[in-house]
Amino acid sequence: MANLSVNLCGITLKNPVIGASGTVGFGREFNELYDIGTVGGISTKGLTNEPRLGNPTPRIAESRGVILNAVGLQNPGVEHFIEHDLAWLKSTGTAVIANVAGKTLDDYRAICERLDGLVDMVELNISCPNVKSGGMAFGIKPQSVEEVAKIAKSALTKTPLMVKLSPNVESIATNAKAAENGGVDAISLINTLTGMAIDIERRRPIIANNTGGVSGAGIKPIAVRMVYEAAQAVKIPVVGMGGITCAEDAIEFLMAGATAVQVGTANFTDPYAMPKIIKGLNEWCDRHGVENVSELTGVLTLNQR
């Protein structure tokens, strides 16, 4: 039995596997299949100050090895989450990471103030590609990444802050650094890559929103590269995600510099993906004489060129 626990800027996760925002809701449905408390953390569906209905359907499409989604941040609003889901989710024993989005800097400030001290961590979504006002405007330019990070950080006096970076940018390293300069405690990446899939019979995009965020197994090499570049650029912890399907995938991210990982699309392919990854991590560590999974973070050595 390897020690799978990791320390993510002061909070202890029982293992480095976190359910990625938008794929596991608030944990209740997956808890019908297995004890969600066995997962290191749950990043909630992106929360906004007010409830949102999201985009029209179809909201999802498939392309070989990946999926595209444009849910458009449908959520019941932060108050509803606090009232109906938070206490339950906490009681399961998983770390509660509130993923939040907004249109304006004031939105981000207000939602962070509301959640301060209530959750284990806040994950700032400044990278949703599926709504005009999903914060991606803040996620592109390094200056605005830093600005929104600063404002969110100042609104959070008790709860650590993580910023989720968009891959749809010029330089992931520059944006990672900008977030760090903004004073955040950790960064997570990658959010989805913007894509399109076309129904050639109808000569129209499959997704009602036309474009959607690409995720799933096929994006993993891009995500690993970006996690590596971001981890090289900052001193704060990095949470890696993008296409993780099995324990070996998760280990790639750890080696590239991640302290913990998130699992998204794989939960759709196999609803038991997360418990399997946790079990697989333990077995891999045992086979390789790794006592603490945290030893794997950043062990990558580049080839000499």
Binding site: G25, R28, G54, T57, R59, V71, Q74, F268
Partner: peptide, 16 residues
């Protein structure tokens, strides 16, 4: 009928 992600109510992909 609607296109689905999780199939169990977690992802809000399949709404009407």
């Amino acid at each position: 009928e609607e296109r689905m992600g999780c199939g169990i109510g977690a992802c809000l992909v399949c709404v009407c």
